[in-house]
Amino acid sequence: MSRSRLSVALVALGATGVAILSPVAAHAEDGGLAPKCQKAVEDAKAAHQAAVENGTAGSSFMGPKELMLGLANGYGSSGMPKTPKCVDEQAAEDEQKEWDNMPDFVQFLRPGTATAEGMAWAGAILGLGAAAVQGLALIAKSDPSILEPLRAALKQAGIQL
């Protein structure tokens, strides 16, 4: 049973990583950028490639971040070119257009900056909590006595297990 949980967790982690990285790559590659912005992206790639060839960019160290970026974009440990500002601006404009095209009854769900940041923090906290519970469950399989303080706290709160 634990092997299936591990495999599900690994698949979910991989899917999350791809989901995080693919919209940026797809947006840059699908030609959805304005011609001027697409030229800025190509110039940034060329400048980065020249810097790598000159030895002024890139590193011999390959950590987890470099590995993921290298797998997603094919840059390896040389790093990524700096993203031009127009890419972020166009992504914001595209998101704004998507919200404008939604029906009126959905418009109240449009997050503001503070709401989006709050939702990101809430998601991070819930994710860390879920990871802690999973870790405790894995440890409890090998040493069930680790759950005694939790059982005592729940019993004191009136919850019988």
Results as ranks from 00 to 15, higher is better:
D30C: 10
D30A: 13
G31N: 10
G32K: 06
L33H: 00
L33F: 02
A40R: 01
V41N: 02
A44I: 07
K45R: 14
A46M: 07
A47I: 10
E53K: 15
A57M: 02
S59E: 08
S59L: 01
M62D: 07
K65A: 14
E66S: 13
M68I: 12
G70Q: 02
L71F: 11
A72D: 01
A72M: 10
Y75C: 05
G76Q: 00
S78F: 02
T83Y: 00
T83L: 11
V87Y: 01
D88K: 13
E89N: 11
E89D: 14
Q90D: 05
A91V: 14
A91D: 03
A92Q: 11
A92S: 13
E95G: 13
N101R: 14
P103M: 04
P103E: 05
P103V: 09
D104H: 09
D104P: 00
F105L: 07
F108L: 06
F108H: 10
L109D: 03
R110T: 11
R110L: 04
P111T: 05
T113I: 07
A120L: 13
W121H: 07
G127A: 06
G127K: 09
G129Q: 06
Q134G: 10
G135M: 03
I139F: 09
E148S: 12
L150Y: 06
R151Y: 07
A152K: 15
L154E: 08
L154I: 06
K155G: 06
K155Q: 13
